[in-house]
Protein backbone atom coordinates (compact mmCIF):
# COMPACT_ATOMS: atom_id res chain seq x y z
CA UNK A 1 0.00 0.00 0.00
CA UNK A 2 2.82 2.32 0.92
CA UNK A 3 4.42 1.66 -2.43
CA UNK A 4 1.15 2.50 -4.17
CA UNK A 5 1.06 5.84 -2.39
CA UNK A 6 4.65 6.57 -3.33
CA UNK A 7 3.89 5.86 -6.96
CA UNK A 8 1.21 8.51 -7.25
CA UNK A 9 2.52 11.18 -9.56
CA UNK A 10 1.53 14.35 -7.68
CA UNK A 11 2.81 16.92 -10.20
CA UNK A 12 1.01 15.02 -12.95
CA UNK A 13 -2.24 15.01 -11.01
CA UNK A 14 -1.87 18.70 -10.19
CA UNK A 15 -1.40 19.47 -13.87
CA UNK A 16 -4.54 17.49 -14.69
CA UNK A 17 -6.52 19.32 -12.04
CA UNK A 18 -5.30 22.65 -13.43
CA UNK A 19 -6.45 21.69 -16.94
CA UNK A 20 -9.87 20.68 -15.62
CA UNK A 21 -10.10 23.99 -13.82
CA UNK A 22 -9.11 25.87 -16.99
CA UNK A 23 -11.81 24.01 -18.90
CA UNK A 24 -14.40 24.90 -16.29
CA UNK A 25 -13.40 28.57 -16.40
CA UNK A 26 -13.37 28.59 -20.20
CA UNK A 27 -16.78 27.00 -20.53
CA UNK A 28 -18.27 29.46 -18.02
CA UNK A 29 -16.78 32.54 -19.66
CA UNK A 30 -15.68 32.61 -23.29
CA UNK A 31 -17.25 29.27 -24.13
CA UNK A 32 -20.58 30.04 -22.51
CA UNK A 33 -22.07 30.86 -25.90
CA UNK A 34 -21.14 27.41 -27.26
CA UNK A 35 -23.71 25.02 -25.87
CA UNK A 36 -21.95 22.08 -27.51
CA UNK A 37 -19.00 22.31 -25.12
CA UNK A 38 -20.37 21.58 -21.67
CA UNK A 39 -18.62 22.66 -18.52
CA UNK A 40 -16.89 20.09 -16.36
CA UNK A 41 -19.55 20.46 -13.71
CA UNK A 42 -22.32 19.86 -16.27
CA UNK A 43 -20.52 16.69 -17.40
CA UNK A 44 -20.26 15.47 -13.80
CA UNK A 45 -23.95 16.18 -13.21
CA UNK A 46 -24.83 14.26 -16.40
CA UNK A 47 -22.61 11.44 -15.24
CA UNK A 48 -24.37 11.37 -11.88
CA UNK A 49 -27.76 11.22 -13.59
CA UNK A 50 -26.64 8.42 -15.88
CA UNK A 51 -25.34 6.44 -12.94
CA UNK A 52 -28.40 7.01 -10.82
CA UNK A 53 -30.93 5.93 -13.44
CA UNK A 54 -28.93 2.71 -13.90
CA UNK A 55 -28.40 3.00 -17.67
CA UNK A 56 -24.70 3.62 -17.46
CA UNK A 57 -23.83 0.76 -15.14
CA UNK A 58 -25.38 -1.91 -17.33
CA UNK A 59 -23.76 -0.37 -20.42
CA UNK A 60 -20.45 -0.27 -18.63
CA UNK A 61 -20.87 -3.90 -17.62
CA UNK A 62 -21.57 -4.89 -21.20
CA UNK A 63 -18.55 -3.12 -22.66
CA UNK A 64 -16.17 -4.32 -19.97
CA UNK A 65 -17.42 -7.88 -20.30
CA UNK A 66 -17.06 -7.93 -24.09
CA UNK A 67 -13.66 -6.29 -24.13
CA UNK A 68 -12.17 -8.42 -21.34
CA UNK A 69 -13.64 -11.69 -22.62
CA UNK A 70 -12.68 -10.79 -26.18
CA UNK A 71 -9.21 -9.84 -25.08
CA UNK A 72 -8.75 -13.14 -23.22
CA UNK A 73 -9.91 -15.19 -26.19
CA UNK A 74 -7.80 -13.10 -28.55
CA UNK A 75 -4.73 -13.56 -26.34
CA UNK A 76 -5.23 -17.32 -26.16
CA UNK A 77 -5.80 -17.60 -29.92
CA UNK A 78 -2.92 -15.26 -30.77
CA UNK A 79 -0.56 -17.01 -28.38
CA UNK A 80 -1.37 -20.48 -29.67
CA UNK A 81 -1.20 -19.52 -33.34
CA UNK A 82 1.92 -17.44 -32.71
CA UNK A 83 3.69 -20.34 -31.04
CA UNK A 84 2.83 -22.72 -33.85
CA UNK A 85 3.97 -20.22 -36.49
CA UNK A 86 7.11 -19.19 -34.60
CA UNK A 87 8.27 -22.67 -33.67
CA UNK A 88 7.71 -24.45 -36.98
CA UNK A 89 9.54 -22.84 -39.84
CA UNK A 90 7.40 -24.43 -42.60
CA UNK A 91 4.23 -23.05 -41.00
CA UNK A 92 5.85 -19.62 -40.94
CA UNK A 93 6.85 -19.91 -44.59
CA UNK A 94 3.38 -20.90 -45.73
CA UNK A 95 1.32 -18.56 -43.55
CA UNK A 96 3.25 -15.29 -43.24
CA UNK A 97 2.24 -13.88 -46.65
CA UNK A 98 -1.46 -14.35 -45.90
CA UNK A 99 -1.04 -12.96 -42.40
CA UNK A 100 0.70 -9.85 -43.70
CA UNK A 101 -2.22 -9.16 -46.06
CA UNK A 102 -4.98 -9.95 -43.57
CA UNK A 103 -3.58 -7.87 -40.76
CA UNK A 104 -3.13 -4.81 -42.93
CA UNK A 105 -6.87 -4.57 -43.63
CA UNK A 106 -8.02 -1.60 -41.54
CA UNK A 107 -9.98 -3.14 -38.69
CA UNK A 108 -12.89 -0.69 -38.81
CA UNK A 109 -13.67 -1.67 -42.39
CA UNK A 110 -14.28 -5.24 -41.25
CA UNK A 111 -17.24 -4.17 -39.17
CA UNK A 112 -19.47 -3.96 -42.24
CA UNK A 113 -18.52 -7.52 -43.18
CA UNK A 114 -19.16 -8.70 -39.63
CA UNK A 115 -22.55 -6.95 -39.69
CA UNK A 116 -23.47 -8.79 -42.86
CA UNK A 117 -22.45 -12.09 -41.31
CA UNK A 118 -23.72 -11.72 -37.77
CA UNK A 119 -26.23 -8.89 -37.79
CA UNK A 120 -26.59 -6.13 -35.19
CA UNK A 121 -25.63 -8.36 -32.31
CA UNK A 122 -23.21 -8.91 -29.47
CA UNK A 123 -21.86 -11.83 -31.44
CA UNK A 124 -20.79 -9.43 -34.15
CA UNK A 125 -19.13 -7.22 -31.56
CA UNK A 126 -17.27 -10.13 -30.01
CA UNK A 127 -16.05 -11.47 -33.36
CA UNK A 128 -14.68 -8.04 -34.28
CA UNK A 129 -12.94 -7.64 -30.91
CA UNK A 130 -11.33 -11.09 -31.03
CA UNK A 131 -10.36 -10.94 -34.68
CA UNK A 132 -8.69 -7.58 -34.44
CA UNK A 133 -6.96 -7.96 -31.08
CA UNK A 134 -5.43 -11.35 -31.73
CA UNK A 135 -3.06 -9.94 -34.37
CA UNK A 136 -0.62 -8.12 -32.10
CA UNK A 137 -0.39 -11.17 -29.81
CA UNK A 138 0.07 -13.54 -32.74
CA UNK A 139 2.70 -11.42 -34.43
CA UNK A 140 4.63 -10.64 -31.25
CA UNK A 141 4.64 -14.30 -30.22
CA UNK A 142 5.59 -15.66 -33.62
CA UNK A 143 8.41 -13.23 -34.22
CA UNK A 144 9.83 -13.41 -30.69
CA UNK A 145 9.69 -17.19 -30.42
CA UNK A 146 11.16 -17.52 -33.90
CA UNK A 147 14.05 -15.23 -33.07
CA UNK A 148 15.52 -16.64 -29.87
CA UNK A 149 19.04 -15.21 -29.44
CA UNK A 150 21.65 -17.57 -30.93
CA UNK A 151 23.59 -17.56 -27.65
CA UNK A 152 20.63 -18.95 -25.67
CA UNK A 153 20.16 -21.70 -28.23
CA UNK A 154 23.86 -22.54 -28.13
CA UNK A 155 23.64 -22.80 -24.34
CA UNK A 156 20.65 -25.10 -24.62
CA UNK A 157 22.55 -27.30 -27.06
CA UNK A 158 25.74 -27.62 -25.05
CA UNK A 159 23.69 -28.37 -21.93
CA UNK A 160 22.01 -31.11 -23.98
CA UNK A 161 18.49 -29.85 -23.43
CA UNK A 162 15.79 -31.78 -25.27
CA UNK A 163 13.74 -30.05 -27.97
CA UNK A 164 10.84 -29.77 -25.59
CA UNK A 165 12.92 -28.33 -22.77
CA UNK A 166 14.53 -25.87 -25.18
CA UNK A 167 11.09 -24.57 -26.15
CA UNK A 168 9.64 -24.52 -22.64
CA UNK A 169 12.67 -23.33 -20.69
CA UNK A 170 14.48 -21.14 -23.19
CA UNK A 171 12.50 -20.04 -26.23
CA UNK A 172 9.16 -19.20 -24.61
CA UNK A 173 10.59 -17.43 -21.53
CA UNK A 174 12.95 -15.49 -23.79
CA UNK A 175 9.96 -14.37 -25.86
CA UNK A 176 7.82 -13.40 -22.87
CA UNK A 177 8.64 -9.66 -22.77
CA UNK A 178 7.64 -9.28 -26.43
CA UNK A 179 4.53 -11.41 -25.94
CA UNK A 180 3.46 -9.15 -23.07
CA UNK A 181 3.82 -6.11 -25.28
CA UNK A 182 1.47 -7.79 -27.75
CA UNK A 183 -0.98 -8.70 -25.00
CA UNK A 184 -1.02 -5.13 -23.76
CA UNK A 185 -1.66 -3.78 -27.23
CA UNK A 186 -4.46 -6.31 -27.61
CA UNK A 187 -6.17 -4.98 -24.50
CA UNK A 188 -6.15 -1.41 -25.79
CA UNK A 189 -7.44 -2.62 -29.17
CA UNK A 190 -10.19 -4.76 -27.68
CA UNK A 191 -11.63 -1.84 -25.71
CA UNK A 192 -11.44 0.43 -28.74
CA UNK A 193 -13.03 -2.13 -31.05
CA UNK A 194 -15.80 -2.99 -28.58
CA UNK A 195 -16.76 0.69 -28.40
CA UNK A 196 -16.60 1.15 -32.17
CA UNK A 197 -18.66 -1.98 -32.80
CA UNK A 198 -21.26 -0.67 -30.32
CA UNK A 199 -21.31 2.71 -32.03
CA UNK A 200 -22.01 1.41 -35.52
CA UNK A 201 -23.49 -2.04 -35.00
CA UNK A 202 -24.48 -3.58 -31.73
CA UNK A 203 -27.01 -1.37 -29.90
CA UNK A 204 -25.58 -1.90 -26.41
CA UNK A 205 -22.76 -0.75 -24.16
CA UNK A 206 -20.93 2.53 -23.79
CA UNK A 207 -20.39 2.96 -27.53
CA UNK A 208 -24.12 2.87 -28.12
CA UNK A 209 -24.59 5.19 -25.15
CA UNK A 210 -22.35 7.87 -26.59
CA UNK A 211 -24.01 7.70 -30.01
CA UNK A 212 -27.44 7.86 -28.40
CA UNK A 213 -26.43 10.93 -26.37
CA UNK A 214 -25.08 12.57 -29.50
CA UNK A 215 -28.27 11.92 -31.45
CA UNK A 216 -30.36 13.23 -28.58
CA UNK A 217 -28.13 16.33 -28.64
CA UNK A 218 -26.98 15.83 -25.07
CA UNK A 219 -23.34 16.95 -25.18
CA UNK A 220 -22.88 16.70 -21.40
CA UNK A 221 -23.99 13.07 -21.51
CA UNK A 222 -21.76 12.30 -24.51
CA UNK A 223 -18.79 13.76 -22.65
CA UNK A 224 -19.73 11.77 -19.57
CA UNK A 225 -19.60 8.56 -21.64
CA UNK A 226 -16.25 9.65 -23.07
CA UNK A 227 -14.94 10.10 -19.55
CA UNK A 228 -16.13 6.63 -18.54
CA UNK A 229 -14.61 4.99 -21.64
CA UNK A 230 -11.30 6.72 -20.91
CA UNK A 231 -11.41 5.57 -17.32
CA UNK A 232 -12.08 1.91 -18.09
CA UNK A 233 -9.26 1.87 -20.65
CA UNK A 234 -6.93 3.25 -18.06
CA UNK A 235 -8.18 0.96 -15.28
CA UNK A 236 -8.00 -2.26 -17.33
CA UNK A 237 -4.50 -1.46 -18.48
CA UNK A 238 -3.40 -0.65 -14.93
CA UNK A 239 -4.97 -3.89 -13.68
CA UNK A 240 -3.11 -5.87 -16.33
CA UNK A 241 0.20 -4.27 -15.43
CA UNK A 242 -0.40 -4.88 -11.74
CA UNK A 243 -1.21 -8.52 -12.44
CA UNK A 244 1.93 -8.91 -14.54
CA UNK A 245 4.00 -7.41 -11.77
CA UNK A 246 2.32 -9.53 -9.14
CA UNK A 247 2.46 -12.90 -10.90
CA UNK A 248 5.53 -12.67 -13.08
CA UNK A 249 9.09 -12.22 -12.05
CA UNK A 250 10.36 -8.72 -12.97
CA UNK A 251 13.52 -10.29 -14.34
CA UNK A 252 11.35 -12.22 -16.75
CA UNK A 253 9.31 -9.29 -17.88
CA UNK A 254 12.03 -6.74 -18.53
CA UNK A 255 14.63 -7.99 -20.98
Amino acid sequence: MNRMVQRINLPGLACMAALVLLWEIFSRTVGARLDTIPSVSAILIALYQLVSDGALLSQLGHTVLVSVAGWLIASAVGLTAGLVIGLWRPVWTYSMASIDVLRSIPSISLISIALLLFGFSSKMEMVIVVYVSQWPVLLATASAVGATPRSYLDSARVLRLSQRATVMKVRIPAALPSILVGVRLALTLSIALAVVAEMVGNPAGLGFGIVYAQQAIQPAQAFAYLLVIGLIGWALNAALMAAVERFLNVHTVTP
Binding site: Y152, D154, V170, P173
Partner: peptide
Protein backbone atom coordinates in the same frame (compact mmCIF):
# COMPACT_ATOMS: atom_id res chain seq x y z
CA UNK B 1 31.19 -19.17 -24.01
CA UNK B 2 32.96 -15.85 -23.99
CA UNK B 3 29.64 -14.05 -24.02
CA UNK B 4 28.48 -14.80 -20.48
CA UNK B 5 25.70 -12.21 -20.62
CA UNK B 6 24.16 -13.93 -23.63
CA UNK B 7 24.47 -17.45 -22.39
CA UNK B 8 23.02 -17.14 -18.89
CA UNK B 9 19.25 -16.94 -18.84
CA UNK B 10 18.33 -13.58 -17.26
CA UNK B 11 15.03 -14.85 -15.84
Amino acid sequence: FQNYAGSLLPW
